[in-house]
Amino acid sequence: MDVIPVIDVARGQVVRAVKGVRSAYQPIETPLAPSSEPADVARGLARLFPFRKLYLADLDGIEGRGRNTHIVPVLSQALPHAEIWIDAGTGSRSAARTVLAAPVATLVVGTESIETVHGWEDIVAEAPLRTVLSLDFRNGEFMGPDAMLNDASLWPSRVIAMTLDRVGANEGPDLNRLHNIVTRAKGRRVYAAGGIRDRGDLDEIRKIGVSGALIASALHSGKISADDLKEIAGR
């Protein structure tokens, strides 16, 4: 199982996500780093474990304030062997091309940023093997064109089930939704995002076929430890 640490960046600082309410996010305070600077947080994560993937949620890009492209080299330097998954609110093929210009980058496209199925097909055509689809949910509602959820043939080989209102909420993952998506994914790798509290939650989602999880709070709180990460990686 892949454990993928998440760094949420807003106005140049790493912030702590709370239930997907982005206006309430504040600069992170964590025992892993001396500040909320992306470089400090990334180095702290690298000391915890040699992660092979890192997820960057560029909230400035998602909310239309301009993308933090300068952060990618900083993160890559801290975790030199990591594939960096980047969600920057990409809604066009030209924007996708900009993200993918970094050799370490994997493009994450959230359905909340997709207006039409045709738009998605145009984006994913740029680099299908370097594109991950995030199926975004908030308060039980799917965010994006209904066909993106209902027609699994549109999904690439890697799919995130993103439950935004459970991010940082300490409520646990939505197991029913994850099971439904895994069942329909038919061999695609499914990643859980939102609600992972501890090692027990990771064990539960692994049992239903989830391939990995995006995690932030549980790493910073120590509820998922370096020993946990080593054991999970060895499976």
Rank of each mutant, 00 (worst) to 15 (best):
R199P: 11
L164Y: 04
F142N: 07
G209K: 08
E121K: 05
M162V: 04
V104F: 14
G119L: 01
P128M: 11
E126N: 09
D122Y: 05
S157T: 13
L214I: 11
I181S: 04
S94F: 13
A102D: 15
G209S: 14
G89P: 04
M148K: 01
V109I: 09
A185I: 00
G200V: 12
P103R: 04
D174H: 07
R188W: 08
T183K: 14
A152F: 10
L202Q: 02
L202R: 00
K207E: 15
L178K: 01
E141K: 15
I205G: 13
D87M: 04
N139L: 12
I196C: 12
R130T: 10
T90L: 03
R93D: 03
L107S: 01
M148N: 03
N139K: 12
R189L: 12
V104C: 15
E171D: 14
S157L: 09
L178W: 00
N139C: 11
R97H: 13
E171S: 13
M148H: 04
P103V: 07
N150T: 13
W120A: 03
T116A: 04
V167C: 10
T116E: 02
I114S: 01
F137H: 05
P128D: 11
I123L: 02
R158T: 14
D201Y: 05
T111W: 01
A147R: 08
G172T: 02
A127Q: 07
G168I: 03
N176W: 09
